[in-house]
């Protein structure tokens, strides 16, 4: 995984709760056998029409790399394709009051930051986007903070271990294999449960 570095990006608003992974990337894109190129499937059913007015197709949000949405973002199917699609499209962070568990985990494995803010802070971002053209936020992962150009900022929680993995770009399989002895010891004590 690539190291996560601080960045400043345009914020695109998706004013819906419970955005599910079927919507983030519909099933026809799950037939892919590689991780790359899935950006074309992002929000496909909402976007696939002539003159799509969907948020990421509007000129002012075309370059956005932060998405802000409402509660329970990424619910439903475990498809990691949803994260690959967001990342491939250019998103580096998603802001919402809450995220579904599996989606959240999948994001961390792919260097896509899930920023959980309080509902009123998320409201403030939606409002600010309406007030300012090309509204941007600066994401500082080490400080766990997002800041805008108008003096507003908010802090977000993140699990220390996940933060370290993101900041250092760690390969978690390699990390786990450092515990080979402990795994082997566990296995020695717990034989295969299935008849062979």
């Amino acid at each position: 995984m690539q190291k996560f570095t601080n960045f400043t990006g345009i914020v695109a608003p998706l004013d819906r709760p419970n955005v599910d992974t079927d919507q983030i990337i519909p099933k026809q894109f799950l037939k892919a056998v590689v991780r790359s190129g899935l950006g074309k499937g992002l929000f496909y059913d909402w976007r696939n029409q002539p003159d799509s007015q969907f948020v990421v197709d509007q000129p002012r949000f075309k370059e956005a790399n932060i998405l802000v949405a409402r509660a329970n973002f990424g619910c439903g199917s475990s498809r990691e394709h949803a994260v690959w699609a967001l990342a491939d499209f250019g998103f580096r962070a998603v802001i919402a009051p809450s995220f579904a568990d599996i989606f959240h985990n999948n994001c961390l494995k792919n260097g896509l930051l899930t920023i959980m803010l309080k509902p009123d802070e998320v409201d403030a971002i939606f409002t600010a986007i309406k007030q300012h053209d090309a509204y941007t936020l600066t994401v500082d992962l080490a400080a766990q903070k997002v800041t805008d150009d108008y003096g507003w900022s908010a802090t977000f929680p993140i699990d220390e271990f996940a933060k370290k993995c993101l900041l250092e770009g760690l390969d978690d399989i390699a990390l786990t294999l450092q515990h080979e002895q402990a795994i082997a010891a566990y296995e020695a004590a717990h034989p295969n449960p299935y008849p062979t």
């Binding site: 475990s78 990691e80 795994i183």
Partner: peptide
Amino acid sequence: DSHTATHGALGALAFGIGTSEVEHVLATQC
């Protein structure tokens, strides 16, 4: 697959994971 919770009906701890985690379990069983 997110509906792995089904198997919990047998008194197991069963849950869905993403593809990166699938790779992780394939490689490490953990």
